[in-house]
Amino acid sequence: MKYVCDVCGWVYDPALGDPESGVAPGTAFEDIPDDWSCPICGAPKDSFSPED
């Protein structure tokens, strides 16, 4: 499932991951480390909501 950042609107797509922050493509949002933050605005992981 995709998750959207409540602060800046950036969407985490598990298929793409976030390689710049060391999150490999194919990583489910739930499996991202808790200290990960939004690569655009720096909001913490708990600022993300499931995309409608």
Binding site: V7, I40, G42, A43
Partner: peptide, 9 residues
Amino acid sequence: IETRMLHWP
């Protein structure tokens, strides 16, 4: 000091 989203990244 970064102030991300105040008001752009």
